[in-house]
Simulated assay, not measured.
Amino acid sequence: MSQEDEPPSTLWGLDPVFSAFARLYIKDLLQIQESRQVPGIYFYNSHPIYKVDVLGTVVYKRERDDFFCYGVDDGTGVINCLCWKNEKWRQTDDPPERSETGFNPIAELKKLQEAQRRCSQLEIGETLRARGPVKTSRQQREVMASTFYKVNDPVMAEQIAWMMEVPELYRKCYDKPFQLQANATSGPTVGRVTRATHILKDFLKEKTVTKFRPYDVLELLQPLVCSQSQTKPGDQGQQNDASVAGPSAGQQLRQLLKESLQVLQDQGAVYRKVKSQDELYHVTEHDKDLLIAVKDIIREDSKREKYAEKGCHVLHILSAVRQRYSPNISKEALELVLKTLECNSDVISASNSHYTMFS
């Protein structure tokens, strides 16, 4: 990426990836190009990145007085993780003997430090998770780990969860170029869609709407279009000339409603049970039939031996709901239903992604 193709550095903060620890595949970390404006910043598909989160198997290690250097392999490539030792590593004093008469806080602190030392010293074949900025040293890409620890993962549960989450992040975020210039020039439009989405959410919550059609809520967004079409007296002549070929107020209103409803669907707040010419939207939180369907699935499948111990995985529940209730249920809508059921004490989360009935 040339300097001309890079978005201005003043706009990087608009990209949420810039402030997060990006969970990129190691093969992509080895290939991303460094910014020509600011050294130490890298670009993946126009996303500015400077700190990452990696998880993988240690395939080699080197130890120095001040740091460990681990080679971490996530199945796509190997990258160096430079893990600095803190002052605790230099404290070699023997812990004081524990008093027979009571609790010795200094001795217990020494035990905690020793446990921390064991968690930060890994051997080949163990799993390491490291977070920190990306650096290029001697033409070699490295992760300067600000946080690192050994992952106790005997049944590979952590790695499986990681492999399920990262592809979704790529689909929803990393593989979609962040158009900073477009967003900067179309701020009023983006802001109007955000305001329209909030208006629809407030209406659905206040009126406890269970289902609706687009024409039922069209008038709610009318003030946004009217305020957008108002111009200053000095600009009236230019506005009239520019609006000859532009969309009418009615077209703008319908387009605004369409974009707002799409945002609500992406968030899982509404869904269409059957996609037909009759655009009927169901409000996820207020759809009692959907809540009952999800609850019945968890109740029935939790009795099966396969799910008796940990409960039903969210992807299993999603597949069952799509087969038995509606193929148009999104994962976001299901997560909202599960959250509602959990708040009502109908189900409980056995882990981050497993649910069972509340007994």
Rank of each mutant, 00 (worst) to 15 (best):
K172A: 12
R62E: 12
K258N: 02
F178V: 13
L291A: 06
Q251Y: 07
Q179R: 14
T185W: 12
L128F: 08
Y215K: 14
L264I: 03
Q277E: 09
F67L: 12
D175I: 15
Q228A: 14
D65S: 01
L338P: 09
D301S: 10
D266R: 05
Q228R: 13
S99W: 09
A145M: 01
N104T: 03
A182F: 07
T185C: 10
D278C: 14
E114T: 11
R141N: 07
M156Y: 03
R141F: 10
F43G: 00
K110R: 00
W162T: 01
K172F: 04
S351N: 01
K303W: 07
H282V: 12
Q236S: 13
Y42F: 13
R299V: 01
V225C: 08
S137D: 03
F212Y: 10
Q262N: 08
P188R: 09
L82K: 04
S302F: 01
R195K: 11
S227H: 05
Y215T: 11
Y60T: 04
K331N: 14
S19K: 11
K205C: 02
Q181A: 15
Q236P: 07
K331L: 13
L336C: 08
V151S: 05
E114M: 13
K135P: 12
Q251S: 06
V347I: 13
Q140P: 02
G102F: 04
P16V: 02
P177Q: 10
Y149T: 05
T356N: 03
I317M: 00
F358S: 14
R36E: 13
V209H: 01
M164W: 03
Q252N: 15
Q116K: 02
R324Y: 00
L256D: 15
L261S: 05
D346Y: 05
H198D: 09
I317T: 10
L256F: 10
K306W: 11
K51A: 06
V38Y: 02
A242P: 09
L224S: 06
Q121K: 10
Q91E: 15
E168V: 02
K303I: 11
D287Y: 02
L218F: 08
Q323V: 04
K150Y: 00
S248G: 09
C343T: 00
A245L: 08
K273Y: 03
V59R: 06
A145D: 07
A161Q: 13
L336H: 15
D53T: 01
K303H: 12
D346P: 00
H286S: 09
H282M: 12
V155C: 03
T356I: 02
R254G: 01
T340K: 14
T210S: 06
V193A: 06
I32M: 14
S243A: 05
L29N: 03
Q222K: 14
V54F: 01
H313Q: 15
I317S: 08
G132R: 11
